[in-house]
Amino acid sequence: MGKSIYSKGAIEEISTRMNGLQADQISLWGSMNPTEMLVHCNLANAAILASSKATQSPSMKQRFYKFIFFHVKKDFPKGARGAKRFDVKGKVDEKTFEEEKSKFLHLLNKFRDLDRKLEAQHPIFGALSHNYWGKFVWKHLDHHLKQFGL
């Protein structure tokens, strides 16, 4: 089923790769600049970390998407549209790059120090277990690091 943010060494690997990101780096695909990507990831990770336990059972469609995403697709799909609340294109001051990078690393480390299991609702996949959230976070961050050649 692939890597997880909870895998041994995963947080260190993401941190090392992230430290290679520069404010003026050009993406290999997509339209976000490095600061926008950081803000996007920070918003998503903060929301995941603050989420409450799912109360709804997933629909058949959500179960199908979940199976494909976690068991068939190796990588996060390029061009996948996230929730509108995480769309920051054109809404970020590029001068905040270092601040956002620091925040990214801080939030990343919170996954290591969790005092509870993540079992929240995902808008496309429905209720996800702690293990699935770990795999989702890994795939999402890996996708954006690869977007910038890291």
Rank of each mutant, 00 (worst) to 15 (best):
I5S: 06
I5F: 09
K8M: 11
A10D: 09
A10T: 12
E13P: 03
T16E: 15
R17C: 06
G20S: 10
G20V: 00
I26E: 15
I26H: 13
L28H: 06
L28E: 11
W29H: 12
E36L: 04
V39E: 09
N42Y: 04
N42T: 06
L43T: 04
L43I: 10
N45M: 15
N45A: 10
A47V: 06
L49Q: 05
P58Y: 01
S59V: 05
Y65R: 10
Y65L: 15
I68H: 03
I68R: 08
V72A: 14
K74H: 12
D75L: 11
P77R: 09
P77M: 09
D87F: 13
V92G: 07
D93A: 15
T96P: 02
F97I: 06
F97M: 05
E98V: 14
E99N: 11
H106V: 08
H106R: 12
L107E: 10
L107C: 01
N109P: 01
N109R: 11
K110T: 09
D113L: 11
D115N: 12
K117S: 06
Q121Y: 05
H122Q: 03
H122G: 02
I124K: 00
G126W: 03
G126N: 02
L128Y: 01
N131H: 07
W138M: 04
L141A: 00
H143Q: 01
H144Y: 03
K146G: 11
